[in-house]
């Protein structure tokens, strides 16, 4: 500090020659401000920040929601209005008749029935195999358990596309695919290969492991078998995870497209996604797609999933948070 000057009775220090550590930044902006002023400035910047955050979030939320909005709006428009040069954000004439037409042309009930049957039976099968395997891995001790579990986990790395080719050949050799396929064959081909999910086994095993050891030993003392302990104690205790698995499995079936498309020979054996993509709302001669009908069909396919989401939001978001894979 080379010199200290005194002006107007206040003391100022000349900073020029002060050696300050490089890490410290002296903010000259705040010089001469009162504490209140600084607080006000901080509050103002906080408000501006909040406003920007909300603007950012809301703008993106609009982008996320827009396709749904547009789907519903388009499904209620006349075809001329959809293709007009002036796009409207609300239908001038609300065309409920689009839905009536879709119900007549698009065999919604058949696809719905197929999807629900496949979903129910593949879910039941998956739950059974998953519960048994998770119990064995979590509670029972036997030679080779950890090795088998490690192999199971490794199979999660393999992309499903590797399996599709051979699985197609396998179900064909079972007689479930090919000439003279019946509805039952198609169901079997769509259900049985999906009775396993290594990830759900892993998930449920973790859940079973959290159940205190004492419960198992107490049940043993009471002379209960492993079998009844599994179904009377462990399964009820793990029910939130089982519900999550069930819902995710349902959503997976609702979304599955490739496999049902491959293994079914008739349109009426297929699932909802296949039906939707395969449905022809096209005037071939004029080369026009009837977007009104088409989007009405997409609304019909989307609404059941939304209802499921509304009722089971907690389970879905929790399950996805842990599972993170569709189907």
């Amino acid at each position: 500090m080379s010199e200290v000057t005194s002006i107007n009775k206040k003391t100022y220090i000349d900073f020029k020659d002060v050696e300050v550590n490089e890490d410290i930044v002296l903010s000259l902006d705040e010089a001469g401000k009162t504490v209140d002023a600084i607080k006000r400035a901080e509050k103002a910047s906080h408000i501006i920040m909040t406003i920007f955050t909300y603007l950012f979030i809301l703008a993106l939320a609009v982008v996320v929601v827009f396709p749904f909005y547009w789907m519903i709006i388009t499904s209620l428009k006349q075809n001329e209005e959809i293709r007009s040069a002036n796009q409207t954000f609300f239908p001038t004439i609300v065309m409920w008749s689009n839905y009536v037409h879709v119900f007549q042309v698009f065999d919604f009930s058949t696809y719905m029935r197929n999807t629900i049957v496949v979903a129910i039976f593949s879910t039941i099968g998956t739950l059974l195999t998953t519960i048994l395997a998770a119990f064995a891995f979590a509670r029972l001790k036997f030679k080779g358990r950890d090795a088998v579990f490690a192999i199971f986990l490794m199979t999660m790395m393999i992309p499903g596309e590797m399996m599709v080719i051979t699985n197609y050949i396998t179900v064909a050799s079972f007689g479930w695919v090919g000439e003279g396929q019946t509805l039952m064959d198609a169901y079997l081909a769509m259900i049985v290969p999906f009775w396993i999910s290594v990830f759900y086994i892993y998930l449920l095993r973790q859940n079973f492991k959290q159940i205190p050891n004492e419960l198992y030993l107490a049940a043993k003392v009471d002379g209960k078998s492993d079998w009844s302990f599994l179904w009377k104690v462990m399964v009820p205790l793990a029910s939130p995870t089982l519900i999550s698995i069930t819902i995710l499995k349902f959503m997976g079936t609702w979304n599955s497209y490739v496999w049902p498309n491959l293994v079914t020979s008739e349109n009426e054996y297929r699932l909802i996604s296949n039906g939707l993509r395969g449905s022809a709302f096209v005037d071939v001669d004029a080369g026009i797609t009837f977007y009104g009908y088409q989007t009405a069909a997409t609304v019909l396919v989307t609404v059941p999933l939304f209802l499921l989401f509304i009722f089971f939001r907690k389970y879905i978001m929790k399950g996805v948070g842990r599972a993170g894979i569709k189907g």
Partner: peptide
């Protein structure tokens, strides 16, 4: 709202 796209049918929204 930001979770909604997860609960959809990929084919259906693709068509939209």
């Amino acid at each position: 709202i930001f979770f909604l796209p997860y609960v959809t049918n990929t084919i259906a929204v693709g068509m939209v």
